[in-house]
């Protein structure tokens, strides 16, 4: 053992550890130089995109084949649902017109929920089982910048944590470092949705700081509250699947199933601004 501590290898190990540790501190302070990651991504992104699309295609094929019977039942159910929904849409149109009229009468400032978005494709997912970053093939060249919000037609995905020329890294809401201010649609109770190491593989998040008196229930929809500097209000996060009352603590906790299926996600929309 004492031979090892006097060996050249041990000295090299120490030198590399010191150098890398210094680089770690520098990169924590100023971030990894963009030109290096840009150069790596320039080569890796097209290949990753190809592999991700191909693997997704094969996965879809197997899923479709194994679920043919289920799809037939779903199709029949969908047909009857369409008729029901068409009636509802007509009703909603009438209500919307009435709502606009009443808002105008009351003098409310119109809240325009139409965002300027850029569509992007997922090219890669973070390796490992405890984190959940995504890479998208859109970057600063497409008008993307750090902290832009990323969504799909189903709901909230996360925000841009890093942006290169032709790529960006998305920190998803499932990630343990993610934290989103939220509001329960039905009751108006506010809380915080946080990612968790234990839930990241099941597409769920923790909902913390629910006031003891809040009347939230399983199945309630959770949206962004607009508090904080990143997420605008009103974007669907998911549904409450479980409530864990904390007998001794000040707040209750809940588990929220994200409305976006992170296993099947292929395309996203990045909000780059509000429509004028």
């Amino acid at each position: 053992m004492s031979k090892f501590f006097k060996s050249k290898l041990f000295i090299v190990l120490i030198i590399i550890t010191v150098v890398v540790a210094s680089l770690m501190m520098i990169s924590t302070a100023i971030g990894t130089p963009n030109f290096i990651t840009n150069a790596v991504e320039f080569v890796v992104t097209p290949v990753s995109r190809l592999f991700y699309s191909a693997a997704g295609g094969v996965d879809n094929m197997f899923t479709s084949a194994s679920q043919a019977g289920e799809y037939r039942t779903m199709y029949e159910q969908a047909q009857s649902k369409i008729t029901e929904l068409e009636n509802q849409v007509r009703e909603i149109d009438e209500l919307r017109a009435e709502n606009d009229r009443l808002r105008a009468i009351l003098g409310f400032k119109e809240y325009n929920n139409q965002f300027e978005t850029v569509a992007g494709q997922i090219t890669a997912k973070e390796p490992g089982n405890m984190y959940a970053d995504l890479k998208v093939n859109r970057g600063t060249n497409d008008g993307i910048s750090k902290d832009d919000v990323v969504i799909t037609d189903k709901g909230l995905v996360g925000y841009v944590s890093e942006a290169g020329n032709t790529w960006c890294k998305v920190r998803t809401i499932l990630d343990p470092s993610s934290s989103v201010g939220c509001i329960v649609g039905r009751t108006g109770d506010r809380a915080i949705v946080e990612g968790s190491t234990e839930l990241v593989d099941s597409g769920k998040c923790n909902m913390l700081y629910i006031a003891k008196g809040a009347s939230v229930a399983t199945g309630d929809s959770v949206e962004t509250s607009g508090l904080g500097s990143i997420y605008p209000e009103g974007i669907l996060i998911g549904k409450i699947t479980q409530i864990t009352p904390d007998v001794q603590g000040l707040y209750n906790q809940a588990t929220v199933e994200a409305s976006v299926d992170f296993d099947k996600i292929r395309e996203v929309l990045i909000i780059v601004g509000k429509k004028q």
Binding site: V44, V47, S48, F51, Y52, A54, A55, G56, V58, D59, T123, A124, K125, E126, P127, G128, N129, K135, D201, S202, D263
Partner: peptide, 17 residues
């Protein structure tokens, strides 16, 4: 590394890659 961040996610068993 490329396989790890692309194809392997589709080969996960019960969410484990």
């Amino acid at each position: 590394l490329i396989l790890q961040s692309t194809v392997m996610h589709f080969l996960g068993i019960m969410g484990v890659v």
